Simulated scan of single mutants.
Amino acid sequence: MTLPSITREYRVSKRGLGSIDALTLISDVPVPTPVANDVLVKIRAVSLNYRDLMLVLGLYPGAKENTIPCSDAAGEVVAVGDRVTKWKVGDRVTVNFSTAHLHGDITPAIMAHSLGANADGTLTEYRSFPAEAVVSIPDHLTFEQAATLPCAGVTAWNALQGPVPLKGGDYVLVQGTGGVSVFGIQFAHALGATIIATSSSNEKLKVAKKLGADFVINYKENPDWEQDVLKITDGRGVDHIIEVGGTNTIIKSIKAVRHAGWIHNIGFLAGFDSDVKPAEITGSLLFKGAIFRGILVGSVSQFEDMNRLISSHKIVPVVDKVFEFAEAKEAYKYLESQKHVGKVVIRVASN
């Protein structure tokens, strides 16, 4: 295979930081040559996360300057280093969120290798990765579908398969219909749980029902949604909550979880401004005996475990809309609008 010598990539310009215009396309970048244990991947598709929007808006802590954004990508191996034995040209692969997180718990050293902020990411046509950081794509998925897996998919999997894994018959509460939440519905359904989904949109809740949600609650029409959750569970509360709101929803989540249940925090979509005091949160957790767990995506090992479930149940990620590589800013704007259900994807290459 003859490879080009020059490629294109997006970087987040310091000059435009604070708006989507910080996203800058560069067209004269040398294609990297894989050495030793690296594999060179032709990126076919990239999916967006809320983190990517925060980065261009200058709100993501610890991001390196002039970084290539995005953590999630799917593509094909086009060259390998001389020590690579696991992968060959033509293999369809995705890459883990942190190229250093192979197994076990997160560490500061692992976080330093997180793609798209701490380290250069995937919004580029060609990218070299350590061979141990890439993962095979399930056969039934397209590149666009597979590109949704590394962050949202693995985060939802890590939440539901953590220290006390979800089991059949458990109750799971999923907030919203973004990428992690949709994967949470799909995985929990496949694992035999009873699922409660919340959203501010009845149209989005219809999609949640189709994906496997057993009960749905519109939190705008039912602001005391935690009471509805308790009614559904006969006062017991749910076993697991995928908590995406943050401070503005955490007290309601604590009320909705069962005693000694799990709240898996993966975001703060409800904003940072809140009248809730830290003592109220810690006191509520204490007297409920609930476990509050922060999720920072997951490992290659967890990624491979998740893909086995995806393959066996033929789970298909929900892709809301696909934009072309030249339309990256439009993709970011669509993500910012929060009109999507599931994932927003950028198609980097189609041939």
Rank of each mutant, 00 (worst) to 15 (best):
T247P: 02
G237H: 14
F268E: 11
G246S: 13
S274H: 07
S274Q: 07
K252N: 12
I251Y: 01
D275P: 07
D275I: 08
L269G: 02
G267I: 04
W262Y: 15
F268N: 14
L269N: 12
G235R: 06
D275F: 05
F272K: 13
I242N: 09
H264M: 13
H259D: 12
I263V: 08
I242Q: 10
V257Y: 09
G246W: 14
G235I: 03
G271C: 06
K252E: 11
G267T: 04
I266V: 15
I263N: 04
A270N: 03
E243Y: 08
I254F: 02
R236G: 01
G246D: 10
I266C: 14
K255V: 05
T247Q: 13
G235Y: 02
G237D: 14
A270Q: 07
K252M: 04
V244N: 13
I241G: 10
R258F: 01
I241E: 13
G245A: 15
I254S: 02
G237S: 08
V257L: 08
K252C: 04
H264G: 00
I242C: 03
K255G: 08
G246E: 08
G267E: 12
D273Y: 05
G271M: 07
A256Y: 09
V238N: 13
G261V: 05
H259R: 09
T247R: 14
F272P: 00
G246A: 13
H240L: 07
K255H: 15
W262K: 10
G267N: 11
